[in-house]
């Protein structure tokens, strides 16, 4: 399976959809900070991996697929839901990367500078997420 990148898909996104993600992202970041402040870092840390924009993203994927199908005169409801399901499967693979990110930050912060640790953790996320995705593709063929 070949991974393709196309900036054309960005043209379909409306400003209010970006605004909604910005709002959810900002609110969740502030909420994670306030929870850590009131209940301590051990509870607050849980919310650093909160699925902040996941429901909104899944809903938008379904909506876009339905809209695409409607332009050719067919009902794309089922196709939209399958697309959202495939996106969620990818997100689950991304979560393996997210675990790697957290593990690197947790274990490396005691030994290295913060900026370096965050850079290494991002790399760990990318490598683990893409590897998990490749394994899934090889295993399921989808």
């Amino acid at each position: 399976m070949i991974v393709k990148a196309s900036l054309d898909s960005l043209k379909e996104i409306k400003p209010h959809e970006v605004g909604m993600r910005f709002l959810f992202g900002g609110v969740c970041t502030v909420a994670a900070y306030l929870i850590a402040k009131h209940f301590g870092p051990a509870v607050g840390g849980l919310f650093l991996a909160f699925p902040a924009i996941f429901p909104a993203s899944a809903s938008l994927i379904e909506k876009h697929e339905k809209k695409d199908k409607a332009t050719v005169g067919s009902d794309g409801t089922e196709r939209g839901r399958v697309a959202a399901g495939l996106d969620a499967a990818g997100t689950a693979m991304g979560c393996i990367g997210l675990m790697g990110f957290a593990l690197v930050v947790w274990r490396a912060l005691a030994m290295q500078r913060g900026g370096m640790v965050l850079a290494e953790a991002c790399l760990a996320w990318l490598v683990l997420a893409v590897s998990a995705w490749l394994l899934r593709v090889r295993h399921s063929g989808s």
Partner: peptide
Amino acid sequence: VFRPKTFAGLFGAAPSIA
């Protein structure tokens, strides 16, 4: 930006809030 959908989905679990 990315296709297929499963690959694009990886970014749904990006360490953005973290």
